[in-house]
Deep mutational scan, measured.
Amino acid sequence: GPREVTMKKGDILTLLNSTNKDWWKVEVNDRQGFVPAAYVKKLDSGTGKELVLALYDYQ
């Protein structure tokens, strides 16, 4: 199956793709996968990378 990404509340993840309104593709610890968009919030990183903050645990 697809590689699952797990996250804990407060984690910072790299946002790869947010074109789908329900599932965003993120990368964390060299793993890529989809997380519910409602579970993360975009951060203003000030760099080229888009980052998101995990609002809830997800696994």
Rank of each mutant, 00 (worst) to 15 (best):
A38Y: 08
V5H: 05
V5M: 15
V52R: 00
I12P: 00
Q32R: 09
Q59D: 13
K41A: 12
N17I: 07
R31T: 14
F34C: 11
G48C: 06
V40D: 02
G33I: 15
L43C: 08
L53G: 02
D22V: 13
D22I: 13
S45H: 09
N29W: 05
I12W: 04
G48Q: 09
K21D: 10
V26N: 00
I12H: 04
D44K: 11
L51S: 09
Y39M: 11
D44I: 11
V5Y: 09
V40N: 00
V26G: 00
K41F: 09
N29P: 03
A54W: 02
D11N: 05
K21H: 10
D11C: 05
L55S: 02
Y39G: 04
K21P: 14
K41T: 11
D44S: 11
K41W: 06
M7D: 02
L51R: 07
D11E: 08
G10K: 00
D11Y: 04
W24V: 06
N20V: 04
L13C: 08
Y56A: 11
K8Q: 08
K25Q: 14
Y39H: 06
N20C: 09
E4C: 14
G33E: 08
T14A: 08
W24L: 04
K49M: 11
E27F: 06
G33N: 05
L53M: 14
P36N: 03
V5P: 04
Y58N: 01
T6Y: 14
E50H: 11
Q59W: 12
K42T: 06
T47G: 14
S18D: 14
P36E: 02
D11Q: 11
L13G: 07
N20G: 10
D30K: 07
K21Y: 06
Q32T: 13
Y39W: 07
R3V: 12
T14P: 09
Y58C: 00
S18I: 05
L13K: 00
L43V: 10
T19M: 09
V40Q: 00
T6E: 10
S18G: 09
L55C: 06
T47Y: 11
V40W: 02
A54E: 01
G48A: 10
L16C: 05
A37F: 03
V52E: 00
E4Y: 15
N20D: 13
P36I: 03
L55I: 09
L43K: 03
I12E: 03
V5E: 02
Y58K: 01
Q59R: 11
S45A: 10
D44H: 12
K42D: 04
W23S: 02
W24Q: 01
G46T: 14
V35L: 03
F34L: 07
Y39I: 07
K42W: 06
N29G: 15
E27D: 05
Q59K: 11
R3E: 11
V35S: 00
A37C: 06
